[in-house]
Nucleic acid binder design. Structure first.
Lengths: 169, 169
DNA sequence: ATTTGACAGTTCGATTTTAGAACTGTATGA
DNA sequence: TCATACAGTTCTAAAATCGAACTGTCAAAT
């Protein structure tokens, strides 16, 4: 499977992984959420090769996760800013941070603490059900095929028939 | 930066990415949450090469995300089951699915729907503050260096001095 | 007037990963 | 005894990544 095929799969995980599912992209997004905006900023914070950084930034802009905004003429310079689509990645980032905080800390303790402005307290992110507000766990969730999956199944069925015809010919 | 260095960084995102931050690992974990347990199951569902699948499964077992459990002798066969550490990845998975549902669906609609057993309704996952229960967004969160970050800063400081001495010599 | 440094990339050869396919070995069922 | 299921391993070719150097514009320092 190639990267660009992932985005066509009838699976929201596959499609999302097509956008953010590699090491450097996730690290770049971490920096975005920590308010880094410029090429040099990303490069020196991450130690990524300049080549790859340029490539990943372009890809994120193409996909609408970042916006490239000029901040000076002569020479032309741009900043990379999260779009709303990019900001919406926040729960993913927080979920990743939290898992690391719980399962990957060493003796030194947590690298970062998070304070909620609204209530003023240090907090952990918690995932709840949008309908009843209770904490979610894998075992309490039932998965059903949605309209996208049914369409995909029909397509797979047709593909299979096409292949069979091809073999016969 | 190499993969194994990621796990030593003073950053929970970097450490987590060191474990799950590649395309195939995330897809394998998707299958785990959909109840796939065996080598052939993963392979045929994902189209991953057998070589990489074997490698990724080993890595996940080493890191305590999966447990390798024999289900028959002669020939020896094993199943790969999520540990608690693995089950705790659920919020990350759900956050990824949800972002895909919102930003990457096509005309066919959502591939999967999620039903919460407790309340019986179809739901979306929502991330809230553990202290006050309000929805989280990036702008409402303040980041503070924790104990792990301070220790890391001191270490970086020492490393820098060591390097300077080396240059001088 | 000339050099130095910051910034944002691009280019290129060497190394590392991944893809794709074939092969190994044990057991079951026809 | 022949085919099939399962869980890998091995091999070569292709693709991605690394590391380092190079390009070009401008501002500030000498």
């Amino acid at each position: 499977m190639k990267w660009d095929e992932l985005e066509e799969e009838a699976c929201s995980i596959a499609r999302t992984i097509g956008v953010i599912g590699d090491r450097w992209t996730l690290m770049i997004l971490r920096e975005c959420f920590l308010r880094t905006r410029r090429f040099e900023g990303f490069q020196s914070a991450l130690g990524i090769t300049r080549h790859l950084l340029a490539e990943r930034l372009k890809k994120l802009v193409r996909q609408g996760v970042l916006r490239r905004i000029p901040y000076q003429e002569a020479p032309k310079r741009h900043e990379y800013i999260l779009t709303q689509k990019g900001l919406d990645l926040y729960p993913i980032m927080m979920a990743i941070v939290h898992w690391g905080d719980v399962h990957m800390v060493d003796v030194r303790g947590r690298p970062l603490l998070h304070q909620h402005r609204k209530c003023g307290k240090m907090f952990d992110p918690v995932m709840v059900c949008s309908e009843c507000g209770e904490r979610l766990s894998a075992k309490e969730v039932h998965v059903h095929p949605g309209p996208g999956a049914r369409a995909a199944l029909e397509k797979a069925h047709l593909d299979k028939k096409a292949k069979a015809r091809k073999r016969a010919a």
